[in-house]
Nucleic acid binder design. Sequence first.
DNA 1: TGACGTCACTTGTCCTTACGAGTTATGACT
DNA 2: AGTCATAACTCGTAAGGACAAGTGACGTCA
Lengths: 259, 259
Amino acid sequence: MSEIQRPGALYQQVAAAIREAILSGEFEPDSLLPSEAQLMARYGVSRPTVRNAIAALRAEGLIDVRHGKGSFVRSSGQPVLTIERRISRTSEGKFVMPNGDIWQEAEEPSTYRTHTTKDTGRLLQLGEEEALFGCDRLLTDPGTGTRAMHRTLIPFEVADGILMLAEEPCKRPAAIYRWLTEDGHKLTWTETVRARMPLPDERATLQLPDATPILHVARVTHDTDDRPLFLEELRFGADRAELAYRITADKQPARRARA
Amino acid sequence: MSEIQRPGALYQQVAAAIREAILSGEFEPDSLLPSEAQLMARYGVSRPTVRNAIAALRAEGLIDVRHGKGSFVRSSGQPVLTIERRISRTSEGKFVMPNGDIWQEAEEPSTYRTHTTKDTGRLLQLGEEEALFGCDRLLTDPGTGTRAMHRTLIPFEVADGILMLAEEPCKRPAAIYRWLTEDGHKLTWTETVRARMPLPDERATLQLPDATPILHVARVTHDTDDRPLFLEELRFGADRAELAYRITADKQPARRARA
DNA sequence: TGACGTCACTTGTCCTTACGAGTTATGACT
DNA sequence: AGTCATAACTCGTAAGGACAAGTGACGTCA
C-alpha cells in the first residue's frame, strides 16, 4: 500500500513509518498494532524485514510485543513512584529517609564478605581489594509494586571502629544513621546517579520490560571530617520510578568531589 | 565445538556463552570477538542464530559492532564526566553552577513559543496548554567531548512579572539566577531525574552508541513562596556522564513534593 | 450448561540462499 | 618505490521456507 522510499534500509523505512504513526497518535497507547502478516502486506516486504523493523521499535522502547497476542504501543506513562532523596531531621532529632520507610523487604537480607572494586574503592577513598561487609536487600513498594535492589557496603576498618557496625553490619541504613548521629557523628551524604542497561539477572529480579534502563544511585555517607564511612547502592527500573532532589543555595563554594 | 544445552532458545544459549566469556574476562575489553562465520562453526548454528545472539548482547550494551570490522567488547568504562548539581554562592554573593560553566554552546540557542504538556504542566504547577517561552541549547564539554541538550521553559505569566525575563528569556540560567537573586528573590530548586532510551533524533544529536540510555534532569526553580518560576531540562548520554549530589541533613521534615 | 478439544490466529525460532557495503591486505602495474 | 586495482575478509540487508509455542474463540460432547 503506502509506498515509502527515502532513507536507507527498507526495514528502517518501515520502522520510521510505524514510529511516525505512533508518535502522531494514529495508534493510541496500549492499542494493538497490525500483525506481522498485515504489515508484510501493507508495505510489500518479507517477514524478516517486518520483524527487523519491529525489533528496532522495541529497542527504542516504543512498543511491547507479547507472544501469541501481538505488538502493543507502550503507554509512555511517566514513572509512578517518586523517590525523594533527602535526609530530614525530625523535631525529636530522629533521622527520617523520605521514602526510606515505604520500602518493604521482599526477602531476607543476605550478608557476605567481599572487597572493593575499582569503582567502589574510588567512592570510599580506598584502594582495591580492601575487605568489606556486604548486605543485599530486595525491596518492594507495596503501593506501586515497584522493586528495587539495595546494597550496603561497609569497610572492615570502619566497622572495627564503630561498635554497632561491627556487631550488626546489616541493619537498615536508617538505623545506622540514627546510631551514628546519637553517637555524635555529623553526617553528610554524596550521591552519584548513573543509568545503564540491566544485566540479565537484574532484568529478571526487577521484572523489567524490554529496553528499560535502570537507575543506579550510589550514596556515600561521610563522617564529620568528610571521611567516607560506608556505601549504599540502590538500583531500580527507570520505567516505574524517578528520583527527586531538593537543592538550596550554599553559603560557601562547593568542594570538588572528584578530579 | 563447545556444546551447549540447557536454557531455552539456541541463540540465547550462544548469547549466554559469549556473555559469560566476556564477563569472566576471557575476552578483554576492546578486543575483537570471533566473526560471525567463526561463531557459526564454533557453536554449529546458522548465521541468523549467531546474529540473533549478537543482537541480544548489543541490546545489553556488552558489545559494539562495526560494519566491515567485527564485534568488540565494549570497554565498560565508567562515565568520564561528573556533573555536580549544586548551587553555590561565592563570597561576593554571586551564583555559580558547578559544571554550569564547563559547558560550551555548540550552536546558537534557538528560541520559540510553545505550551505546557501534561508533564511540564505538573512540574510548573500549571494546567495544560499554558503559553511558554522555550529556549534550546546544544552544549558540549570541551574536555571530554560530551554533548548535552539543554532546554529552558518559562511561563508567559512569570516572564510578564519579571522584567528581565520578558526582555531576554533566553539568557543562560546562571545569569537568570543572578538577576533574580539581586532582585531579592530567594531561590530553591527541585530536580527530578529519569532515564529512558533515546528517540532517534536524540541518538543522532548526542551521538550515542547502541543501547545507551539518556539521563533526563528536570530542574524547577522556585521563588521565595515556593511558587515555580521556570523549568530547565538537561539530557545527555549515560555512557559519558553521571550526576553527583551532596545532601545535608535538614532541620525540619521535608514537605512532600508530590502527592 | 459446563468442560474440553480443536483450530485459527498470533509471535518465536531456525534454517538456506543471495547480494550489498565497509575494511584491509595483497599484489600487479607504472 | 609508489599507486591503485583486486581479492578476501568483515557485517548489513532481504528474501524464502518450515515448524514450535502461546492465545483465544468456537464448537462439540458429556
